[in-house]
Design a protein around this nucleic acid. Sequence first.
DNA 1: GGCTGTTGTGCAATCGATTGCAATTTGCTG
DNA 2: CAGCAAATTGCAATCGATTGCACAACAGCC
Lengths: 351, 351
Amino acid sequence: MSRRAAPPDPRKRMQMADLARLAGVSASTVSRALAGSPLISADTRERIQTLARQFNYTVNSVATDLRSGVKRTIAVVVPYEQGTRQSFADPFLHGMIGALADALTERGYEMLLSRIDAERLDAAATLVDGGRAAGLILIGQWRHHDQLNAMAERGLPLVVWGAKLPRQQYCTVGGDNLQGGRLVAEHLLAQGRRRLAFLGDTGLPEVAQRFRGFTAALKEQGVELKQRASVPFLVESGRQTMAALLDGQPDIDGVFASSDLLAMAAIGALRERGLRVPDDVAVVGYDDVELAGHFNPPLTTVRQPIHDGGTVMVEQLLAQLAGETVVRARVLDTRLVERESSRIRRARAGT
Amino acid sequence: MSRRAAPPDPRKRMQMADLARLAGVSASTVSRALAGSPLISADTRERIQTLARQFNYTVNSVATDLRSGVKRTIAVVVPYEQGTRQSFADPFLHGMIGALADALTERGYEMLLSRIDAERLDAAATLVDGGRAAGLILIGQWRHHDQLNAMAERGLPLVVWGAKLPRQQYCTVGGDNLQGGRLVAEHLLAQGRRRLAFLGDTGLPEVAQRFRGFTAALKEQGVELKQRASVPFLVESGRQTMAALLDGQPDIDGVFASSDLLAMAAIGALRERGLRVPDDVAVVGYDDVELAGHFNPPLTTVRQPIHDGGTVMVEQLLAQLAGETVVRARVLDTRLVERESSRIRRARAGT
DNA sequence: GGCTGTTGTGCAATCGATTGCAATTTGCTG
DNA sequence: CAGCAAATTGCAATCGATTGCACAACAGCC
């Protein structure tokens, strides 16, 4: 009975010891050979590598990470608010997730995507405490500044997309929301709009800053905001809220929606009223998501540096993990992209 | 010198042995206590759990998984084609990712999100071979039927979103694309459209089936397709392709775009030509992404069961992992959602 | 008091790798 | 051919948990 190499058992995955047996060497040698260590002779190394390829064996990276203590996984956390699970549908999020995926892959990291209840933000910490991820990237700071501060003070590697706030212990990356809000105000005024409305939940720091920038710039020009409605980043809510807002104030001629999603929803509501965009009402969004330029009408919006933002967040996190000290808040530049949804008003037929 | 419990060192994460020392018991006991084993007395168990909470210690789930051999991570793989990295921008994908995230979280699994080159589909296998994930969920089968077959034959736990194909060894979940294409044809014909065009890359199995269903239904009514253009799922390509198509065939009165994204792009191109949707040209999309109903005009489209699809994929994969035999292909029902973009034609002024 | 039966804990092996150090082989030199 | 350095390879400990089995403590019973 000839003792042949064990046949590749399809139910159990091959492991280093098996390959070592096949190659007639020890596991140490296999480990070193596959890692390309110069301690192993070129002959042996190649023989083992060929064998590994042949049996398509891959070192178990979980075990590797456990032993070596380094982790190559980063958790990207998308919080959702109670009863608003759909908030995952915001196209801004997807742009951001795509950017993060690219930036992480480029640097050899895996991405663990996790949705968690915004009320239990610190549950995200479990991913790091439990050794699943080396660090945390959180999209949006929501209403939980204090929790985030607490997490950072515990020494949790953490980067948050959001606004720079006073007394902030954690690291943020975000667009310049004050400037963004300002740009919108100046633009709408330049287009001759005076009866303006704002759409967005100022309970969120980013939105609050957009709002502050917006109203500050208006005030400088002596214009007062006509209407303001708090609304989550959901297309259905946006539509309803815009409709309700028109009930109270039918003669609005400009809307600043704090996200492109809301802007699109608002345009839908305006159309239902028979109001034309931009002829009757100018609409400006925020984010410049990919679809913004292809909407009907193409959306004027504030461009958030989504792709760069993703890269910067990853870099900040990796710097933290490397033990470097990082600047607390990175505020990225922002600019207005003018498209049709806010073109200068034409006289309205019959008005 | 009193030997007090070691102070919580902020730089190194606490581990089971540390907690054991604090509690004055062995690591075994801590392990059992935290796992809620009945072997441990209620007293001890509670004392240890309290201590763990107090020091916010979490068991290292990587080590746990290594030891116990079970993995609670599933890799979701989004392939991209060369030079089309942007394909991540398709809102259909995000709906699907959201659905998968929900379904996985609900069952206590983590989701590893990975973008890979469609040409190296089997690189995804590394995630499983390397022990990072228990199984693979792949979104789209692209042009790689054979590679997928090979992966499945190797025994890789795998579920693919896509079309049911002949000689298929792997497990798919998808909408009924033949039926979907049919529904669109019947609808457009019912709206009195006769000069029809198709937009989509029939190199992809799903699109090919939509196309087959579409043309088959047309033929039954004696109508012939006027135009057909191959185009990837990218908004910019969609726009250009639609424009080029209008150059060759300006009197098109109906368009079937094989995704909502392409439909939106097509509408943009039509508008640029001064053509009205739906008055001059009816446009029908595919997917029914969240924004479809809020586009301008609201999009008629074929509803893909995205959320159910995600759930079914996860269930199929977990069944495979549990060693159950699963049906090879699940084809989910599909239906047409009529909205404004394909409303019945009104006589065109001056025609 | 000795014996058996519960209960509660700890020892040590194990999961699948990596790596310091020791051991073996080979090649050279004198 | 002995002696020593260099080049390879293997042993065994380790990463942070889990778990079968042995063991200790204590109660109850005759």
